[in-house]
Amino acid sequence: MTRIVETELEALDGLWESGLGEAYGAYLAGGGRPETALAAALVEVAVRLQGLGGAAASPPDLLRGDLCLARASRLLAQNAGLTQQVAFARTIEDAAAAAAAGRPLPPVRERLLEALAA
């Protein structure tokens, strides 16, 4: 685990082992820098944690998902350019809109990998 990951996991205990670590590795391999790869992994985990497109998350999981999204937003604000920030936000907007409409979610990982390459 890199130093950036260690400092950014505060209040998100257990998420690394339950998918965040795997997602981070995938985004890092997909060309992301540690900060932006972690942001992408946090977004992906948040979507899953909050049950977007499925059954609603429990309140604690919803709040942890919110923290994942907020932390990803802050990491992007500090480390990514405008194009990447917008692409990340659009991915979440599209996933949330699909969930609200009862449609299948767009492929989040694919979209975030595209965003990292933008």
């Binding site: 948040a46 909050q50 049950g51 977007l52 499925g54 059954a55 609603a56 998350a57 919803l62 919110d66 999204l69 907020a70 937003s73 604000a77 405008l82 920030q85 917008v86 936000a89 659009r90 979440i92 907007e93 996933a95 949330a96 809109a97 969930a99 609200a100």
Partner: peptide
């Protein structure tokens, strides 16, 4: 409208708001 919709609505507007702010291009 149920918790599923509420979660999606909140997420959509978190994301949209951060995009609108990013598009102002004032880091």
């Amino acid at each position: 409208e149920g918790p599923e919709r509420a979660i999606a609505v909140g997420d959509f507007y978190f994301a949209k708001a951060t995009r609108l702010i990013a598009e102002l291009d004032e880091p």
